[in-house]
Design a protein around this nucleic acid. Structure first.
Length: 276
DNA sequence: ATTGAGACCTGTCGGC
DNA sequence: TGCCGACAGGTCTCAA
């Protein structure tokens, strides 16, 4: 479940057991995930201390004592499991088939990366080279930072002929939105996913009112999702439009029906009656 | 320069 | 029950 809110939730869970702890042992159960692991990945990690565990878009970044950065991405199906009792790891009910990477930390925690589809990423980046990392270095603004606003969004969308929905999935436009929250934000903002991205900006690249509305909707949708996921006993939430094809729109006084269609090979959900 | 299509993997679900 | 296609919360690469 890996868009920004879910990755942020993972960061908050892993932080307490990884920050300030050393990698005592790193086990790789296969040669790589989406791509092969870096040469001597396990060896270079072992005995290093994690100074800080941060998030950038959908990436987790573990700053290491050497100055290197461990870059992690959950792909479509990645997840971490934390086992505090090392004597019985993994527990009997865990599906161990897709446990690809195991970190034994000096905190006593065993952190296991599981990823059935193996679209995830684990990469080690040299000191000072993060900005040159092809994916992390190209990321757009963090949507929850003050620097991200309607003006920033308009600048990134100006002149672009792609649809608004596809633009929101472009990690250079804004970092961390995925297929669910792109649809959700557009619905909250009342903007059609079919519109050209350029229509939220003036020809000069300045924000129209829709750009401000969309930037605020993005922030709100992400904040609410983080709060839901981090809160105890979250109900595996219902979304505003995502995965609700054929259901009634929940916007007040809207009698529309949620529709699903395909954009750039991915499902988009929206209400034709209240998104323009 | 932009944009869409296909590739990468495995699992699940609905229809026949 | 079993088989088959469609689909899944993400990127990357390639060709138009």
């Amino acid at each position: 479940m890996p868009e920004l809110p879910e990755v942020e939730t993972v960061r908050r869970r892993l932080g307490p057991v990884m920050e300030g702890a050393r990698f005592e042992r790193v086990i790789l159960r296969r040669k790589g995930l989406r791509r092969p692991f870096a040469r001597n990945f396990a060896g270079r990690l072992t005995s290093q201390t994690v100074c800080a565990l941060e998030r950038r878009g959908k990436y987790l970044l573990a700053g290491l004592s050497s100055g290197e950065t461990l870059v992690m991405h959950l792909g479509m199906s990645g997840s971490f499991r934390i086992d505090l009792d090392t004597s019985q790891t993994p527990r009997g009910d865990d599906d161990v088939r897709h446990d690809h990477v195991v970190f034994r930390m000096s905190s006593g925690a065993v952190v296991t990366y599981n990823d059935p589809r193996r679209f995830g990423v684990m990469d080690l980046v040299a000191r000072g080279k993060l900005a040159q990392h092809p994916a992390v270095g190209a990321l757009g603004p963090e949507p929850l930072e003050p620097a991200f606003d309607g003006a920033a969004l308009a600048r990134a969308c100006a002149g672009r002929r792609i649809s608004l929905k596809v633009a929101l999935l472009d990690q250079r436009v804004v970092a961390g939105l995925g297929n669910i929250y792109a649809s959700e934000a557009l619905h909250l903002a009342g903007l059609s996913p079919r519109r050209r991205a350029s229509t939220i900006a003036t020809p000069a690249g300045l924000p129209k009112p829709d750009a401000h509305r969309l930037a605020e909707a993005i922030k709100q949708v992400l904040r609410e999702a983080i709060a839901r996921a981090s809160g105890r006993r979250y109900r595996s939430s219902r979304f505003r439009v995502y995965d609700r094809n054929g259901e009634r729109c929940r916007t007040r006084r809207c009698k529309g029906t949620i529709r699903r269609f395909s954009q750039a090979g991915r499902s988009t959900f929206y209400c034709p009656d209240c998104q323009h």
